[in-house]
């Protein structure tokens, strides 16, 4: 395990996580959440949890983002916060 890489991705995860809940557009939040999930997947592959990383790459970054986009498409992009 390379701790520099680990720290860099952990910082990115926190930044993207804060971004996902502060951006003032729900479609943006959905895409930010996809990026967050992908960072998470990288973090798990660094830790050696390959099965978990694979699941997160297909489920979190793939299907969840599609669900979010579908829900935003069926409702509204507007958000006050």
């Amino acid at each position: 395990m390379i701790w520099q890489l680990d720290l860099a991705i952990l910082t990115l995860v926190v930044i993207v996580g804060i971004g996902a809940i502060t951006v003032k557009d729900l479609l943006g939040a959905a895409i930010m959440f996809g990026a967050y999930s992908f960072m998470m997947c990288l973090l798990w592959s660094i830790m050696g949890a390959v099965d978990v990383a694979f699941t997160e790459a297909s489920v979190g970054a793939g299907v969840s983002t599609v669900f979010f986009v579908a829900a935003v498409f069926r409702t509204t992009r507007r958000t006050k916060d």
């Binding site: 390959v50 099965d51 990383a53 694979f54 699941t55 297909s58 489920v59 793939g62 299907v63 599609v66």
Partner: peptide
Amino acid sequence: SPGGGFQGGVMLGASVI
């Protein structure tokens, strides 16, 4: 290798999606 029912199932579903 890494993989199994959960990952493969999600990918099969994703192909139809």
